[in-house]
Each structure stands twice: as C-alpha cells, then as structure tokens.
Design a protein around this nucleic acid. Structure first.
Length: 524
RNA sequence: GGCCCCAUCGUCUAGCGGUCUAGGACUCCGGCCUUUCACGCCGGCAACACGGGUUCGAGUCCCGUUGGGGUCACCA
C-alpha cells in the first residue's frame, strides 16, 4: 500500500509557521515511503476570493520546495482538490448517514440548543444535547416543519462505550463516547461542515496517514465515528505537538503578536525584517509581515533550507548530535517514531543560528544571485544589472562573509552602491571618530598617502597604513576608525582594506575629501 | 469547569532499568583572535516538577499530586 498524506490549508491569505511544520512532516513521511503528498484546499467556509487567499500559501510551499503530487495546479485521479467543489460527495455522505440512522434531522434553533448548554453549565453537569427536536421519521419532520422550523443534520453519536484508537505519536488514546457531542455535519442550507467533508475527502483521496496538529486530537473520535458509519477504511492517525510561542508554552498564533514583541529575541527578529522590508519598499503591516508567517522569511532573504532544517528539529530529532540536514537527509532519516510528544517553543535565535550555518555553506555565486533582487528592489542597482555588476558584487559578498546572515543584509552595505556625494553618514560615528582629536589631520595626511598608493589593492593599502602609523607613532585605532567613517559613512562594516579596494582609489579619495570638508564646515 | 494530552538545562533535544557524577545544540557569561562589526577558537554556568510505589537498582516502569497545554461552534 502506498503511503498517502495530505495537508489541508484553508485559504486564509497566509502560511503559518506551525502549518508549515505540519506540512513538512506530512511531506517528509510521504517522500520517505515513496508515497504521495496531497494538498487539499479546505474552503467549505465559502469566501469570496479563494484563489487570491490561496496564492500566498502555494507560493510559500513552492519557495520551500515542498512539492505536492496532487492538489491545486496538479491534477490527479481524485480531482477536484478543493472541498468547495466536492460538496456533492459530502452531501451524499450526509444522506447516507441519515438513511442509516447514524445521523438525524434536528429542528432545534440555535437558541434552543444554546439554552440547553447554558442550563447544563449552570447545573454543573456535562452538556449533551437532549435530542428533543430530533426527527427520525418523516412525520416528526413534517410536524416540526409545520411549526416553520428548519433542520440541520446532526451526528447521532453513541452514548455508551469508548472510542479507542492508536495514535502513531501518542500511543493508545481513549475517549468516552457519551461525552461526544451530536455535531452538526450539514447546515440548514445544505452545505456540509468540516468534519464530514474532511473524512469523506480523506477517504476519497485514499489518505493512509492523517498527520496533523494536536489540536485535532479531540476531534478524532467524531471523525472515526463518521468514517466507520460510512464504511470507510480508517487512516492511521498521528497527532503532532503544536509549535509553541516564543518563550512560552501556548500554541503560537498570529493574533498574539503584541505579546511576542515583548520577547527580546522575537522583537529583534522582527526589527531586522522590518528594516530590510523598509529598504526594499515592501509593505509591512504587522498582519501581513511577521515571523509567524512564512512569507516574512522569504522577503527578508532567509534560505528555505535553513527554515526547513530548523522546523524539522522542532519536535523531531534523529539522535543526540545530528542537527544539520539537507532535504535528502531529512527524507532519509525521518520517522514518526522519533517525533516528540510535547510542544516545542519557537526560538528565533536558534533559527538564526541555522540560517547562519546554511549561509556559510552556500557557494559565493549563489549568494550573489540571492542578493541581486534585494539591491534591485532597493534601487541600488539597475534591473537588469549592468554586466560589470557581477564582479563587483562578488567582491562585496566575499568581503562581507558571515556578515551576510540573510540575503537582505546586503542592504547594510549600500555605501558601495551609492554615489560619493549621496553617501550618508552615521552621525554618532562621525562625531566619535572623525571629530576625535587629531583625527582629521591624520585623515588628511593619509589621504595623500593613498593618492600615491599603487596598486590600490587591499594588501598594498594595508602596507601603506601600517607604514603610516609607524611613521606617526600612533596606533592603528587612532586612524582606521576615522578612515572607515570617511569612506563608508559608518562605524562598522567590512574589513577596512577590502572596503578600500572595492571602492577604488578615486572614490576613496573623493569620500575622504568630502568627509574632511564636512568636518571643517561643521566645526565652525 | 468537563474531556483529552504533555512534563530532562532559559530554549530545542539525547536518554527506551544499571555504561547518567545526565550528553549535544542555541542562548548567556568569561577568555582568545582582532581595524569595527560579524565569524572562528577555548572555557564556564545551567535540567531529570513533586510524592508514593515496583525493583538488587528508576530520568527511564506504575499510581497520585502539582504545573502547563489542547479542546469543548450551523470555523477549519
């Protein structure tokens, strides 16, 4: 039997980080067993613009390289893969359950059921619907309809015994049937609800393993009931621990952003992203752009491999030491047996650590390619880039080394792309370094040295500076900081001599000149 | 509140009865490297929630307590 797993997003307009983790485990399990991974769109809730709300989700999957074998854009033997297009199947199932007596027409109003619920609450007993407005015969139904009532279809849940099943992650789980509610499976307007639709589609799609988040664990008995009554083969169930919020134990949620922002690490992850987004003119409402949404990482220039590597370790591990996995290694090693039972908190710092490691392993050429779109969006290079851009970029990216933690970090080195007159100064650094005692004089003298430095490469420049400090009997720190501010406008950056070489003599001299003028003019 | 699930360093985790004076990773704290910032290197702090059993022996099995969480819709 081929393994078939599925991930069933509802088109909400964004891809949640916890959702990706669930999808990843489904994908890995299918790939590991040579099976199929199916994307099913749970859009029974009927919204206007399904395609628009779905696109960001599909884009996220494509970016991460989580390919689906059947689903939107990939037709398969069980199409369609949108639940809204399968309502005839769901309705047929509801009818079947009704006819077999596993479900009933219920003529209660919402208020009446609510009243029962409130009463039970008041008396401190468990609520179970009385079935008072249940119609099992057409006569009863006609009588209720005579009163002008409308019906919904409810499951007629067993009221004795237990529902026991084996969860691939949690082991044996057991629920008392009598505590399960007679859930509505079909609305008054005939449309069907999630639980019914999900079970029917899983069966139709021949899903063998339902791997989903723990929040569905308590839904499982009613789904098992539906499946059994429909005569469907039960899938295996595996309920994953959910991804917990940064620094907490509750399930991570897009809605609690304000709370997470109080977490220092989460905040700095956000700030970093926002800075890059601002530089490339990407719109950033907290609702559409934050670390709980996968899109955030793409926009900021994270590597899909790093995200996946971090995520796979959130609730799963191979052994006591292996942390780095390529996609293929993940597939080779993944198993549900090694999935943890307890929730794993989302840790921005650990994610960053993985991002750094993966960046370090990326060949320079690929880094350059990643960086180009950011520079283009920021208006720092033309698009398409002029043909002499590649060598320059390569030099910068090489010199930046590990300072480039995400592709978007290239924007911290904008000074290499702007005109000498357009370069901005970090005022604090300028005050501290250029206005330091004697700094301007030294800078001026060293400018003359640089003017005669040939060839203008890092080694020669360094030699020149070493000689200069020896002659003036100063320490390197007495001049190099001022030089850095003069040439780059900033207090921190690449290695000084790499920076000089990249800019070239003319630009360095021009920038030092401009810097000295600024120091002078403002001094008076 | 009912039902269900969970419980090892701050975080992610290893551990499936003796090899655990509990290992790794991230963070943090020292130090080194150093022209800044990163990176890198070396070192350090830091955990079996508690109480009962079972057993020659328990982080590992059982029960209870406590704590945390999930879920209780004509949402998915």
């Amino acid at each position: 039997m081929t393994v078939r797993t599925r991930f069933a997003p509802s088109p909400t307009g964004y891809l949640h980080i916890g959702g990706v983790r669930t999808a990843l485990f489904n994908w890995l399990f299918a790939r590991k067993h040579g099976g199929q991974f199916i994307l099913r769109i749970d859009d029974t809730d009927q919204q206007r613009n399904v395609e628009a709300a779905l696109e960001p989700i599909l884009a996220g999957f494509r970016w991460l390289g989580l390919d689906w074998d059947e689903g939107p854009g990939v037709d398969g033997p069980h199409a369609p893969y949108y639940q809204s297009q399968r309502s005839d199947r769901h309705q047929a199932a509801a009818k079947q359950l009704l006819e077999a007596g596993f479900a009933y027409r219920d003529y209660a109003t919402t208020d009446e059921v609510q009243a029962e619920r409130t009463a039970a609450e008041k008396e401190k007993r468990d609520f179970v619907y009385s079935r008072r407005w249940m119609a099992e015969t057409d006569e009863q139904a006609a009588a209720y309809e005579g009163e002008g009532r409308q019906f919904v279809v409810r499951l007629k849940m067993p009221r004795e015994g237990k529902c026991e099943f084996r969860d691939l992650i949690r082991g044996d789980v057991s629920f008392v049937w009598a505590k399960e509610q007679d859930h509505v499976i079909q609305r008054g307007d005939g449309s069907c609800l999630y639980h019914l639709a999900s079970v029917v589609d899983d069966a139709d799609f021949e899903i063998t393993h339902v791997i989903r988040a723990e929040e569905h664990l308590s839904n499982t008995p009613r789904q098992i009931f539906i499946a059994r009554c429909l005569g469907c083969k039960l899938p295996e169930y595996a309920h994953l621990p959910y991804v917990a919020e940064p620094g907490g134990t509750a399930k991570i949620s897009k809605r609690k952003l304000d709370k997470y922002l109080k977490n220092r690490d989460f905040k700095s992850l956000c700030d970093h992203g926002n800075a890059i987004a601002a530089a490339i003119g990407h719109e950033t409402t907290a609702d559409t752009f934050n670390p709980v949404i996968v899109d955030f990482y793409r926009e900021v220039g994270y590597l899909p491999a790093a995200i996946l590597n971090y995520l796979v370790l959130l609730g799963w591990s191979l052994d006591d030491k292996t942390e780095e996995f390529t996609r293929d290694e993940m597939i080779r090693h993944f198993s549900l047996e090694r999935v943890n039972k307890s929730p794993a908190s989302f840790d921005p710092q650990k994610l960053s650590a993985f991002q750094l490691r993966h960046m370090q392993q990326l060949p320079i050429k690929q880094k350059v390619a990643l960086v180009v779109p950011f520079l283009q969006k920021a208006g720092l290079i033309a698009s398409p880039p002029p043909c002499d851009t590649a060598p320059l970029l390569t030099k910068i990216v090489e010199a930046a080394g590990d300072r480039l933690k995400t592709a978007g970090d290239i924007l911290e080195f904008d000074e290499f792309f702007v005109a000498d007159e357009a370069m901005t100064y970090d005022d604090k650094a300028f005050d501290k370094r250029v206005r330091a005692d004697g700094a301007a004089t030294l800078l001026s003298s060293f400018r003359d040295i640089l003017a005669d430095t040939e060839p203008f490469d890092r080694a020669t420049c360094e030699a020149a500076l070493r000689l200069f400090i020896e002659l003036h009997d100063i320490k390197i720190g007495d001049i190099i900081h001022a030089l850095r501010v003069a040439v780059t406008g900033k207090g921190v950056g690449l290695g000084m001599f790499e920076a000089l070489e990249i800019l070239g003599k003319d630009r360095c001299l021009a920038r030092i000149g401009r810097c000295l003028e600024r120091a002078e003019s403002e001094a008076t």
